[in-house]
Computed example of a mutant assay.
Amino acid sequence: MHYQPPLHWPALLGFLAARAIAGVEKVEAGAYVRSFVLGDQQGVVRVCQARGHRLKVTVQGVPTQALAGVLARVRRVFDLDADLPRIEQQLRTDALMARLIDTRPGLRVPRGWDAFEQSMRTVLGQQISVAGAITLAGRLVAGYGQALAAPLQVASGLTHVFPVAQAIVDTDLSGLGMPRSRASTLSTLARALLHDPQLLRPERDLEAWVQRLCRLRGIGPWSAHYLALRQMGAADALPLGDVALVKALRLLEGPEAQLAQRAQAWSPWRAYAAQHLWASLS
């Protein structure tokens, strides 16, 4: 699978490794491996670097005619169609971004595998560390995810596919170890996506998209912007209330630095600026 360079593979793989949900995905030997469902077929995909400006993608469990859809999904998850030379050229007009790009040239903005999974990840990550959110996601998978077919388990070392919305929409998830309000938000969002599968469809008007999401109980500006960044692929999305982003900026520019003010210089590529700030903490 070809991509336009540059691509910072170590940072991309590190991001995925830190957020890998037990049983569903893993990073090993320089590759990202995950289970998925396509239609009524379970599958496993493995992605690693190849020679030249290419990634090697290995897919198991789905018929040949389904491969194009899987490969399109991989391109989306790995942000392979981004025009990084253009994005980095514009961000380099800001001194801080120029420094961060020199450190990690070709940094991409990874996106979610599908709308439902990414929405659940986002809610689980509200006001909690990445490690804490992934622990909760692992419990969600173990309790409500479908077991991966035995041959795929043996081949991949994975055990489950991520739950579907129907499995949790009317379930009390507070027993997983989260506040009842957050468990309720998971159910609310699952129900909304079942009612409108296009709820998280991309739109040109980012603010209108954010306002629409914020009408859902339990979804505020942070969650909506994070979903816009990870699911919609909005290049200018920026969750201003993100504690890690504020921390990263102040470590780099001092305790008085204001994220909202500084971010004005990064538009229309604030999502990529955010990814650089997050990466600077690792």
Score class of each variant (00 low, 15 high):
19 R>M: 09
105 P>E: 13
122 T>N: 11
274 A>H: 03
44 V>R: 00
141 V>F: 00
46 R>A: 10
196 D>L: 01
90 Q>I: 14
119 S>Q: 15
166 Q>L: 10
17 A>Q: 15
16 L>S: 04
208 A>Q: 14
62 V>H: 01
22 A>L: 07
253 E>V: 06
174 S>C: 12
1 M>D: 01
32 Y>T: 01
56 K>N: 15
104 R>T: 05
242 D>N: 12
126 Q>A: 07
157 G>D: 07
270 R>H: 02
255 P>D: 12
274 A>R: 07
113 W>R: 04
224 A>F: 04
215 R>Q: 14
207 E>L: 03
121 R>L: 04
85 P>Y: 15
129 S>Y: 14
270 R>L: 03
211 Q>F: 12
80 L>V: 10
227 L>G: 11
92 R>I: 08
97 M>H: 02
50 A>E: 06
218 G>S: 11
111 R>Y: 10
60 Q>T: 03
226 Y>N: 05
210 V>A: 10
180 R>M: 06
167 A>Y: 01
205 D>M: 10
19 R>K: 09
63 P>G: 00
243 V>M: 13
246 V>G: 09
144 Y>I: 09
259 L>T: 08
35 S>P: 02
108 R>K: 10
240 L>Q: 14
6 P>A: 06
216 L>N: 09
120 M>H: 02
67 L>A: 03
170 D>V: 04
15 F>P: 05
144 Y>V: 06
74 V>C: 08
278 W>N: 05
27 V>A: 04
169 V>H: 05
282 S>F: 07
212 R>P: 11
57 V>H: 00
54 R>G: 06
12 L>S: 04
161 V>W: 00
137 A>F: 10
258 Q>H: 10
260 A>C: 06
5 P>F: 00
272 Y>P: 10
170 D>W: 06
236 D>N: 05
227 L>P: 08
92 R>L: 08
261 Q>T: 14
243 V>R: 10
2 H>A: 13
183 A>K: 04
240 L>K: 14
201 R>G: 14
80 L>R: 01
139 R>H: 15
130 V>C: 09
271 A>L: 02
17 A>L: 15
